[in-house]
Design a binder for these strands. Structure first.
Length: 454
RNA sequence: ACCGCCGUAGCUCAGUGGACGAGAGCACCUGGCUACGAACCAGGGGGCCGCGUGUUCGAAUCACGCCGGCGGUACCA
């Protein structure tokens, strides 16, 4: 099974708009692997096309930014925004951008040189963010990778009569029940559909997957409907499930889209840092006895965990209005709550002796809080399987939270270390060990760390 | 205009293969640390589950229509 997610644009810093695909995709990849699929995670980076034409035009006019850090990337980002707007207003700039994107496709050395620099810069700036989020890719086959694989698809579509060439030279596809779309520009350049069609053909040949999962925002639903219909019409991917996991975009608190030029853009790094800072403040207040390095590590696990969980616990299709307090919530229905319950279980296990654990008799667990936990444990496989069939990690996030709540009640009503009898104590220890393992596994599958102590 | 998604408590959201008389978090009110860690727990107020019709023994959940919000609709991605 191949899972495509994150797929950031080049020459841009990752912002809250990218976080959803990244987080949802990684969780799905984790869970599909747990379900037994051999998962290939792929970031289909946007390193090709007309947007690069615009970038190259901008650099040609304004010069190449110095440095190889986030600051340089920010400058590129600004250049792109400005020239993208210019291209819409001035036909000469637009033409220049088209020319450059074509030169890039044709292997022009100058274009290639700048292209390599831009891609390298972007990937190196993004890398530490991925590390913090626990994200890793098996392959990064950007759109450029498919440059030489597109002509055959276009030819195939024409040959099969699925597509036709217009008088202007463009290749147009008309399928039943689908709006028509283009497979090739009139100047010979390729398009989004072309690249994605070539990508499917490649993946089909290369991996023979049972499914290809696209974790891409909902605005591209039509694109994928058309793409999948095209591939079916061509006779491709007959035995492959093609799935678009669609999610809603993140908008500003005012209900309007986030945009750099509107000044309300929130970058991923800033978001993670703020989450870390908030978690650190609470760690300092509630666990002053822990050494500095540990509190720092806990703050990272808790802060980043909160961000990840916030994205996973709700229906991905909803539009999310940016709300710092909600995204970074550290109480209630949040990752820290689940992490806390896990840590309390671990705390009990730390205080018990090893020989106590695993020898308990489960039939002694008859208190309502105990049976509730046993039921919760039994439901975990269902939750994981639901993710596999519904393609949403929310089912598992929900399980983690409900289970953590049941754990909290048990914690209050059923003392473990000071249980009434040694037999009950042993049984409860065994239960606590199971809960700790279940919660930790659930969190790990979601891509969230489960520290032994907060 | 057409297509898609969403519309559940003041706010943010769970719940839609059969399973109590509809749930959680935040906010508000009340109570609980001489600790298996209070990043917690217990309790309270607060809801024509957008509206209507239909299917069914039974509908927040399924079907159809309507209203509202958002998104998309060939040479950007």
């Amino acid at each position: 099974m191949l899972v495509e997610y994150s797929s950031p644009n080049m020459a841009r810093r990752m912002h809250v708009g990218h976080i959803r695909s990244t987080i949802i995709g990684q969780a799905l990849a984790n869970i599909m692997a747990a379900l037994g699929y051999r998962v290939i995670s792929d970031s289909h980076i946007g390193d090709w096309g007309k947007n690069f034409g615009i970038l190259l035009t901008a650099i040609r006019h304004e010069g190449r930014p110095t440095g190889n850090d986030e600051a340089a990337l920010a400058i590129l980002e600004g250049l792109y925004a400005r020239y993208n707007r210019l291209a819409e207003e001035e036909a000469t700039i637009d033409q220049e951008a088209r020319d450059w994107s074509l030169r890039l496709e044709q292997g022009d050395p100058e274009a290639l040189d700048l292209w390599r620099w831009i891609v390298g810069l972007t990937l190196s700036v993004n890398a530490p963010l991925y590390t913090r989020l626990g994200v890793r890719f098996d392959t990064i086959h950007g759109e450029s990778f498919f440059n030489d694989k597109m002509a055959p698809i276009v030819a195939e579509a024409l040959k099969q009569g699925v597509a036709t060439r217009t008088d202007g030279g463009a290749v147009v596809v008309t399928l039943p029940e689908q709006p028509t779309f283009l497979l090739q520009r009139s100047d010979g350049g390729t398009l989004y559909h072309t690249r994605d069609a070539a990508t499917i053909a490649f993946r089909e040949e290369e991996y023979r997957p049972t499914a290809i999962i696209y974790v891409v925002d909902g605005r591209q639903e039509l694109h994928f409907r058309q793409l999948f219909a095209l591939m079916r019409a061509l006779g491709h991917a007959r035995e492959i499930a093609l799935v678009h996991v669609s999610f809603g975009v993140v908008i500003g608190p005012d209900g309007r889209p986030l945009a750099a030029r509107r000044g309300n853009m929130v970058y991923l790094q800033a978001l993670l840092n703020e989450a870390h800072t908030r978690a650190r403040a609470i760690a300092d207040a509630s666990s002053p006895h822990l050494p500095e390095v540990e509190r720092e590590a806990i703050a990272e696990a808790v802060g980043v965990g909160a961000v990840i969980y916030n994205d996973l616990h709700q229906d991905p299709r909803r539009t999310i209005a940016l709300d710092w307090d909600q995204m970074l919530a550290l109480q209630g229905n949040s990752a820290p709550y689940i992490q806390y319950m896990h840590a309390r279980c671990r705390s009990i296990l730390r205080r018990a002796t090893l020989t106590d654990i695993g020898s308990g008799d489960p039939s002694l667990l008859t208190h309502p809080a105990e049976t509730a936990l046993l039921k919760a444990l039994a439901l975990m496989p269902n939750a994981v399987r639901a993710v596999g069939t519904r393609y949403t990690a929310a089912a598992l996030a929900e399980w983690c939270y409900e289970t953590a709540r049941a754990t909290a009640t048990f914690y209050r009503d059923c003392p473990t270390l000071t249980a009434p009898t040694p037999e009950v104590r042993a049984a409860r220890l065994r239960l606590v060990a199971a809960m700790a393992q279940g919660l930790a596994s659930g969190l790990h599958l979601l891509g969230i760390a489960a520290p032994d102590q907060l």
